[in-house]
Structure formats: C-alpha cells, structure tokens
Design a protein around this nucleic acid. Structure first.
Lengths: 123, 123
DNA sequence: TAGAAACCTGACGTTGACGTCAGAGATAGC
DNA sequence: GCTATCTCTGACGTCAACGTCAGGTTTCTA
C-alpha cells in the first residue's frame, strides 16, 4: 500500500510516517517513481511506535530497541533499557493515579459546593 | 520567602516559577525593590501546578481552573472541565497499562531468548 | 559599608513530533 | 492521453515549558 493508505489505516498523518522513516523507525520499498510502498506488517509497526511514544519513550530509544522488538530477542543492554522504560512507565502510572485522587477530591468538593448553591465565579 | 528558596523547597527552577507567574498560575508580593516574595501556601500551590502538568493539563486549562481549585468550589463549566480531564487521565492510564503489558511480553521473550543463548545484535 | 550572592527584565535558544507550504513528479481512473 | 489525486523533497513554522545569557538592581552578610 502507499503512504496515504497506511496513514488512514493507522490514523497517523502522512507527515508523521515520513518522519518515522527519517528517524529510522519505519522502512519502505520505493516504486520506480520513488513513491513509498508498505507491506501489511507496517500497520502493526506503526501502532507499536505509537504505543512506545505514548509510553514517553523517545524516537532515539525506540530506534535502538526496534530491531530487537521486531524479532522478540534482545541483547543484555537492550533488555536493561527495556526494564528501565518499564519502571518509568510504572512510575508514570503511579503519578497519574495520585493525580486522579487529587482530581477526585477536588471534583467531589466542587460538586458538593455547587449542589449546596455556593459556586465559585468562573474566570 | 524569596524566589530562590521557593525553588529549592519545591524542586522547581527559578525560571519555571517566573514562568508560572507569567502564565497567571502563581502570584507574589513584591518588595520595595521589586523582588518577589511568597507565603508558605506557595509551596503547595507549586506542587499542585506540577501535579496538573504531570496529568497532561496545559497551563491554559490550569489557569482557568485554579481559582476554583484554590477554594474547592467550582462553576458548572469548570466542574465539567475537571471531569473531562479526569477521564483523559483515566484513558492515559489505560493506555500506559496496555503499553506495560506489551513491554512485559517483549521483556519476557527477550529474557528467555537471552537465557537460551540467542541474543539479537544491538545496533 | 563593601562586596558577594541573589534577584530583576527582556529576549533569544532548545527540544520533539510533527504541521504546512511550495514546486515538481508519479499514479490511477476514465 | 488527460486530468484529478496522490506523492515526492526540502525547508521553514509551531507549541509548551522552560534554559540561558546579558546587563543591571537589590539584599544579605561580614
């Protein structure tokens, strides 16, 4: 498939896909005329990249790990890297859950005050 | 206290504190000579700002919600805003947990392959 | 009352993941 | 074969949350 199709299939912009290639995250065959062509696996690859981005992992780190992520095998260094990232994701989740608690208490207080008719003026 | 002390107490840079003020997130009294002075509450305020940033809430959104967060009371609009943010935080957590699962399976596979002596070459 | 240390404003720099635009070539459908 | 649509490269723009630097003022300490 060409780049536009991959874009609509993954929900990622064409520009982003070119950017991924630029960063070495994604490969493509080129047609006679120089246009990019992708196989079906590219869809999964792009989704994986998005996942890793969402986990706060930079493209530089992703590019280091990708050959191993693709094969499911890793060098000790990459394995250590992955474990680092794992714990950073865990930390991030903890932070967010902490934030969630705070938000909840604020929301509860606000809803209660609102119900009792003492709203705060919006700005 | 002056800005340097607030910075060390909160672990946030002096520049960041000035930026918060610039964005309307943080207030200060000024001395005769124009230097910022903060009360003790400022420490909590800064921590709250950091929490909200960590939740992926932009300073523009924070500044809308802050007067209400400070008093614990909110207008219906702000309350709705807070609930939106709450659900976005929940979604974010879900995504991260999904990612965690993926990372775990990759790590497990890699560790196993590594133990059986079939490492993948690092780049 | 020095002088060091902290602080001020203003302004430009940085980083990552793209957005957007221009000008030109490639493909697909009729 | 024509034309609409897609795609190409290259390059500059964007946005948020600060970093950093310059040149000057204020505050604390000895």
């Amino acid at each position: 498939m060409r780049i536009g199709e991959l874009a609509t299939k993954t929900g990622v912009s064409v520009r982003a896909l070119r950017y991924y290639e630029e960063q070495g995250l994604l490969e493509s065959e080129r047609s006679e005329g120089g246009q990019r062509h992708y196989g079906d696996k590219a869809v999964d690859r792009v989704r994986m990249i998005q996942q890793l981005y969402a986990a706060g992992i930079s493209s530089a780190s992703i590019v280091e790990m990708l050959p191993c992520l693709a094969t499911g095998v890793a060098s000790p260094e990459v394995l250590a890297r992955l474990r680092e990232h794992r714990s950073s994701v865990v930390r991030r989740i903890d932070e967010l859950q902490e934030t969630l608690l705070q938000l909840d208490s604020v929301i509860a207080g606000a809803a209660k005050a609102l119900a009792s008719g003492v709203p705060c003026a919006p700005r």
